[in-house]
């Protein structure tokens, strides 16, 4: 173990850490926003849309994330029409391809969590809301969705950790995330452990922080349940 080597390259790891944090938090944001309607149409059996959402979740949960990432990054770039389209400035960048891949994949998993939570909200809540004169939409927005999201917190915290660990795949398409930084260090100095161990320590530190945050969230939002 060459600690001085790691210290000398702290800027490399700082850049990796920054990229991982941005990538994971944006993926969670976009994935989460996409997951709510996907969960709704499935939970309430909306015709056509419900089936489409089911298909979406089946495809993205049924194939490995690495394969999805390669299809988005290398696959799409093979088509002349894609390269000439208005989407190319985005799809050209490895970082955005990773972001798109992780968001779409994360949405599929999160939608399953939310769907389960929505179905788990007792009938009584609906009846009470209706009895107060709320419309379906108002009851959903003001009563049902907040309860469902709160109930999702424990399962969702797991999902966040999975997205973080899945984000290492970004390094396979040249993004310098935490693992990418570790690999670059190993590759530049022909060392074996230093890069990986530093990466592992950084991931553990993030997971530790995340679990503290989620424990606080659970304490705050799940107290009444």
């Amino acid at each position: 173990m060459d600690l001085a080597l790691i210290y000398d390259n702290w800027e490399l790891f700082a850049r990796g850490l920054q990229n991982t944090i941005i990538l994971v938090s944006c993926s969670l944001l976009f994935g989460g926003v996409l997951a709510v309607p996907l969960a709704m149409v499935q939970a309430y059996n909306v015709p056509v849309l419900g089936k489409l959402a089911l298909g979406y979740s089946y495809v993205f949960r049924g194939t490995p994330l690495l394969v999805q990432l390669f299809i988005i990054y290398y696959g799409l770039a093979q088509f002349e029409t894609v390269r000439n389209s208005i989407f190319w400035p985005v799809l050209r960048e490895p970082f955005y391809c990773a972001l798109i891949g992780f968001s779409l994949n994360g949405a599929a998993y999160a939608s399953e969590i939310f769907r389960g939570a929505l179905l788990d909200v007792g009938k009584g809540y609906w009846e009470a809301a209706m009895a107060c004169g709320m419309s379906w939409a108002a009851a959903f927005r003001r009563i049902i969705l907040p309860i469902a999201l709160r109930k999702s917190i424990p399962a969702y915290s797991n999902e966040v950790i999975f997205v973080l660990h899945g984000s290492v795949l970004a390094s396979t398409i040249t993004v310098v995330d935490i693992l990418g930084a570790g690999r670059q260090l190993n590759g530049t100095y022909y060392v074996t452990y230093e890069g990986f161990i530093t990466a592992a320590a950084l991931y553990m530190a993030i997971v530790f922080t995340l679990s503290l945050v989620f424990r606080a969230l659970e304490f705050k939002f799940l107290r009444f349940m």
Binding site: Y74, Q78, R83, R92, Q184
Partner: peptide, 18 residues
Amino acid sequence: IREYPTWDEVWLDLSAGR
């Protein structure tokens, strides 16, 4: 400088214009 796992991927991205 973008570092790839293999040359094959370098060539893919060179021809794609990345």
